[in-house]
């Protein structure tokens, strides 16, 4: 293939192509190449979001962006023992596209003061405080556990409001394919099944007639205060 030396491309194409090549669809290269070729004659091609090639490319870009976003959201680090002052964490994640290298700088910016490795079927990224390393050799799923996951599950269970059950909404944003690597996801079926019962119980259990002791004391205090005030004002007047 021969490309003339004077080939110029807009920055917008570079951004688009960089996202496209992460896509898992084998047709991505041919499409990127065709757009590059057409750009030589149609300089404003990328401004036409309704063009079929551009629309397809944008769709790929969007899918890669979403995958990137979900990876930054759903990676779960587990602590592993390590000598020395830095703490160490390992995560296992299964992305749809080739985004391990694309997401690595995000984790570096965020988790700078700890060592970490993210292993995926599409390669690994790792940071040790000095160098960020990425490869694309498929990794094996490590066997990991972390006690703090139990606290996280406790939080997940209790922040859920059973009176607002909206399972479909949850699943569009957190599709089931991610669940197996999310420590909190094992709680979901139980939460859904128990929701109605919990709401009914709340409805049945009307407000109790007795207030807690400290409330009674509080009332007594404020009443005493107002009493004292009245008393004062009465005295000062007399």
């Amino acid at each position: 293939m021969h490309i003339s030396r004077s080939l110029t491309v807009p920055q917008a194409f570079l951004d688009l192509a960089q996202a496209m090549i992460c896509h898992s669809d084998p047709a991505r290269f041919a499409l990127a190449y065709r757009i590059l070729w057409r750009l030589q004659g149609e300089r404003h091609l990328l401004d036409i979001p309704t063009d079929p090639d551009v629309a397809r490319a944008r769709k790929m870009e969007k899918s890669v962006r979403r995958d990137y976003h979900k990876m930054t959201a759903f990676v779960r680090f587990k602590e592993v023992p390590q000598d020395g002052p830095r703490r160490a964490f390992v995560a296992w994640f299964e992305p749809d596209h080739h985004i391990v290298a694309r997401t690595a700088p995000f984790f570096q910016r965020r988790f700078t003061d700890m060592d970490w490795v993210i292993a995926t079927p599409m390669g690994r990224s790792a940071w040790d405080g000095e160098a960020l390393r990425c490869d694309d050799a498929p990794a094996d799923k490590p066997d990991l556990s972390d006690d703090t996951d139990e606290l996280w599950r406790t939080y997940f269970v209790n922040i859920f409001n059973p009176a607002r059950l909206k399972v479909k909404m949850m699943q569009t944003e957190m599709p089931k394919k991610y669940w197996k690597n999310l420590p909190e996801a094992e709680m979901i079926p139980g939460l859904i099944n128990g929701a109605e019962q919990r709401v009914r119980e709340m409805a049945d259990r009307l407000a109790s007639d007795t207030a807690p002791r400290f409330n009674t004391r509080l009332h007594a205090k404020t009443q005493a205060k107002t009493h004292a005030k009245i008393h004062e004002s009465v005295q000062s007047r007399s």
Partner: peptide, 16 residues
């Protein structure tokens, strides 16, 4: 970033 979604469909982004 929403790091999780509860079955009420709400985003969990912060330790609230």
């Amino acid at each position: 970033i929403c790091h999780a979604y509860a079955p009420d469909g709400r985003c969990i982004s912060l330790l609230k």
